[in-house]
Amino acid sequence: MRVNFTVNGRPQEADDVWEGESLLYVLRERLGLPGSKNACEQGECGSCTVRLDGVPVCSCLVAAGQVEGRDVVTVEGLAEHARQRSCGDAHGTALDEARGRQAQGTDSQTGEGTELAPIQQAFIDAGAVQCGFCTPGLLVAADEMLERNPDPTDADIREALSGNLCRCTGYEKIMDAVRLAAARQQEAV
């Protein structure tokens, strides 16, 4: 079957989709967006977390056919999503502006010059990334929590991220990163 939906602000079309495919598979294998990770494919680890019509979900538990006509944000679109939020621009970027940024270019190999969302920068700065496999899902979940709850307690952070497993860090640096992002967000206001 064919599925049309929006990913990170861009219309996408996937063809020849097997009916049993998940949104995760379509993103990773058909649309060239492997940032969402395939760690368990049973909704237990949160590595595949994306926002579906704004809401964090496990993309491994969304059938591809269910996203027809809907809006998805993945880790690849997180920086742009955060930028639009900070501009108070809820309706997407003007096309020219988007092209302008694209033309500046980033070195996709080194990541140098890449614009990051505050939560992404905080994860790097706090040492919250080791193997990094859980990172994309955690970033999407944490970013959404800070959107709803800009001044979270530690218990709030733990609850919001309880659907995202990490095997490397022991979560302490992840806590640090989210606290750091929240603090920076408050300073910026």
């Binding site: 949160g46 979900v57 659907g163």
Partner: peptide
Amino acid sequence: VASPQIRNR
């Protein structure tokens, strides 16, 4: 129920 992600759907 499960996780925030699953409770959302």
